[in-house]
Structures are given as C-alpha cells and as structure tokens.
C-alpha cells in the first residue's frame, strides 16, 4: 500500500516536472516564432508608416497613423500590375503544360506495354539530374537564334518538362486498381478513353498537389527569367522587384517596401486559407522549389 503511494507520488512528480519542461519548451518556441516573423512585420508596418515615423531611431513599431501613400505611389511608378499578370501567365501556362505532358507520359509508363519502356523511363528520369545551370547557356544561344529572348515562351516552354512530375504521376497511376481499366477495356474503351475517363478523374489529388508545387516554383523562379527577360514590362514579379535594388536600382526605399508588401500580403492571405493543402502538397511531392 505505502509502496504504491510512493510510486504514485514519484509518477506525479515526474508528470509535474515534464509539465513544466513542456511549458518552458512552448515558451522558447513562441519567442523564437515571434523573432522569426519580425522582419516581415517590420517591413509591412514600415510600409504603412508616415514619413516622420518610418525610420525613426529607436524604431517605432506601431505607426500612430496609417499612411498608404507609398502603396499608391509604388503602383503608379513601377509596372507592378503588369508584372503580376506576367507571373500569373507564365506560372499558369508552365503548370498546365507540365501537367498535360507529364500525365500523358506517366500513363504510358504506368499502363501501356511497349518495347523499351523501362529504359525510356530511366532516361527521362535521369533528366532530373540536369540542373538549369547546365542547360541555360545552350538554351540562351538557341532561343536567341529562334528569337524568343525577352519573350515569355523562353520561360514557360522549358518548364513544361518535369521528370519528377512524370515520376510522381506514374507512381500515383500505378496505385489505381488495374481492374478499373480492365473492365473499361472489356466495354471497348481504348487507351485514350481510359486515360481521360478513369485515370485522370481519379488522380485529381495528385494532379492538384503537383500543380500547386509547380505553380509556386514558377511564381518564385529567379535564375532563369533574370537571364531571359530584360524589358521591365515583361518581367515576372521576382525579377522586377530585384531590379529595383542594387546598382542602377531605385533609391526610394519606401516604394520598394510597398512593392514587396504588395507581393507578401496576397500571398499570406492565400496561404492562410490553403495552408494544410499547400504544406501537404510540398511534403508529399518533396519539391524544394
């Protein structure tokens, strides 16, 4: 009896101890989290502060009155609207093209039988290991020859082939029960019919996950469009905004704050509503962008 009491007391003590260490850990993480997000908060608050308070020393965190003039000015001075549309256009076309091309190929690799199938698959998959840094110089020379430098086609055409996309969709297609297409085959359906009527509708989650990841990658891409696009009105957002800083850039800092704010705020709102789906897509596809 007394023994069990001491055991219980020990247990309670341990529980209490772990409770405290849990709370401490939570506090540490919370402080860490606040520090983590602070640079973004500072940028946004500064962008809506009045001229006097903006860069006060010591920093004044909460503006006493809101001033959105930097946003309206930035919107007038920089081609932000155009660059938003450019980014949207390039990301949409890249993503759709990549989804179509990858799913067609993935279906052939997952379901059809033909000579050299596995070899061809391995060759395409090996394309995964070819970084854009290797293809950029020959592509630049070739694109110049056919006249698509400073043209959005130079951005979305190369983005349409994604070996990883083909690989992931093939995996997913193979997880769809074969009986489904066998019975359709008996009903006289051909490969295209099975692909469009059975495989694609059943693969919506995989296509959505891959699609959103490819979209984000294209939306944030910098290396490639920075080389291929030189006219400001044709630039995508990341290139446009980077061209504002550094040598030859704009010196009106607050307008740059506002332009970055115009990128962050919509993105954050979208993220709040789609967080779970976005995180899951990135975790399952494993694409780091």
């Amino acid at each position: 009896m007394s023994q069990s009491i001491t055991v219980n007391a020990k247990k309670a003590k341990r529980n209490f101890k772990s409770e405290i260490s849990d709370q401490v850990a939570n506090l540490v993480i919370l402080i860490f989290a606040v520090l983590w997000i602070l640079p973004i908060v500072w940028l946004l608050l500064t962008s809506i502060s009045s001229r006097e308070e903006r860069f006060a020393i010591p920093p004044k965190w909460l503006p006493s009155k809101l001033d959105f003039s930097s946003y309206t000015r930035a919107w007038e001075v920089f081609p932000i609207a155009e660059q938003y549309l450019n980014s949207l256009k390039v990301a949409l076309i890249s993503t759709l093209g990549a989804l179509i091309i990858s799913s067609l190929a993935a279906y052939a690799f997952a379901r059809l039988e033909f000579f050299g199938r596995d070899t061809l698959f391995m060759i395409l998959l090996a394309g995964l290991m070819v970084p854009p840094q290797l293809t950029v110089i020959p592509s630049f020379v070739a694109f110049r020859k056919i006249g698509i430098i400073d043209n959005h086609a130079a951005l979305f055409l190369p983005a349409m082939i994604t070996p990883l996309g083909i690989f992931l969709l093939r995996q997913f297609f193979r997880s769809i029960p074969k009986e489904l297409d066998e019975s359709a085959k008996i009903d006289g359906a051909g490969a295209f019919r099975i692909f469009f009527r059975i495989i694609l509708p059943l693969s919506k989650p995989a296509l959505a996950a891959l699609g959103v990841v490819l979209f984000i990658a294209s939306w944030n891409e910098f290396f490639w469009p920075n080389i291929f696009i030189s006219t400001a009105s044709k630039m995508t957002l990341p290139v446009g905004i980077a061209s504002l800083v550094g040598p030859g850039g704009n010196t009106n800092v607050i307008l740059i704050f506002a332009s970055v704010g115009m990128q962050i705020v919509p993105l954050f709102l979208i993220f709040l509503f789609t967080q779970k789906f976005l995180i899951q897509s990135i975790a399952t596809t494993g694409i780091r962008g």
Partner: peptide
C-alpha cells in the same frame, strides 16, 4: 510562422 518564408520569392526575402 516557420513555413511562410518558404513561399516567399528569393527577391522578396533578399529585400526584406
């Protein structure tokens, strides 16, 4: 908090 910066472009991150 920890995931959002991953969605930012390198340009926005660099400017911040």
């Amino acid at each position: 908090v920890f995931f959002f910066p991953f969605l930012l472009s390198w340009s926005a991150t660099s400017i911040i």
